[in-house]
Design a protein around this nucleic acid. Structure first.
Length: 271
DNA sequence: ATGGTGGGCCACCCA
């Protein structure tokens, strides 16, 4: 069986509904993992997703900010919503496709990792300290433990870290910019090691090719300047990585009317 | 060195 997964930080699911419709019409992912939905669960536009073929929806939202969701054409079970760092932020959602008629269960973890504020110093910036603590806690989590132990799982989402040299437009100029500082890159990499996660995007587009999923709203001519970063990721556990068949970054979406500052990343797996 | 834009929501919080 083949399935296609997309991850997209939509920056308000309600505002971005027309773009979501356009994207799923073009790419038809089976499973759509969203971040920054900014939508309480009781106001999530379930009917619109059902109309687009996504009858199965798992939600972990809150009013005003953060929020993650998984919309799927395939039924799933065992929805879990974890909290990190003792906060109630809606930043995590896991679903399991064990009950979906698959020969082998597949688990998908959808994350919206804290962005970390502006100042890359945990002593003076609580948001950066929170980001680092979140990465530490995730490295010690069951999601990573199970992935390393042989589970078939994906970890996707807006991880808010661009770990590799060519995940940013200028490695040298971004070394002190939150998202690419050595300390957070090391923590993300440690978390990746803890799960033995395989970076699916870079299996298809290896360094040194530039690979971005986010372009700032503050860039007046984002496409020409192309000062992007790879903040969004699809990681596969060792047991699932070999099933990856293709991957693409849907860059077009950044040029649509009223876009998110992130674009969808899509990957197809064959079990 | 700074400011640029775009979300939610009604005073500023956040990215």
């Amino acid at each position: 069986m083949q399935f296609t997964v997309a991850t997209w930080n939509v920056n308000s699911v309600r505002l971005r509904l027309p773009l979501i419709e356009r994207f799923v019409t073009l790419r038809a992912p089976d499973i759509l993992c969203l971040q920054e939905t900014k939508c309480p669960d009781d106001r999530f536009p379930r009917a619109d997703f059902a109309r687009l073929g996504y009858e199965h929806v798992a939600l972990h939202g809150q009013k005003g900010w953060h929020g993650v969701a998984i919309a799927s054409r395939i039924p799933f079970a065992d929805v879990t919503r974890e909290h990190f760092c003792g906060r109630n932020d809606a930043r995590h959602l896991t679903v399991n496709f064990a009950a979906a008629g698959l020969a082998v269960p597949v688990t998908i973890h959808n994350f919206y990792i804290p962005s970390g504020g502006d100042e890359p110093d945990p002593a003076t910036n609580d948001k950066f300290a929170h980001k680092l603590a979140f990465l530490d806690e995730l490295a010690a989590s069951a999601a990573c433990r199970d992935a390393a132990a042989g589970a078939r799982s994906l970890l996707v989402g807006d991880l808010n870290v661009a770990p590799l040299e060519h995940d940013v437009w200028s490695h040298r100029q971004l070394l002190d910019v939150v998202s690419h500082t050595p300390v957070e890159v090391e923590k993300l990499t440690a978390m990746q090691r803890a799960g033995a996660w395989i970076d699916v995007m870079r299996r298809f587009i290896p360094e040194p090719e530039k690979l971005f999923t986010w372009w700032s709203y503050r860039s007046p001519d984002w496409a020409r300047a192309d000062k992007g970063r790879r903040l969004d990721h699809i990681w596969a556990s060792p047991a699932l990585a070999g099933a990856a068949r293709e991957m693409s970054v849907f860059r077009d979406a950044r040029g649509w009317e009223r876009p998110s500052d992130h674009v969808p990343v899509v990957a197809t797996f064959e079990l």
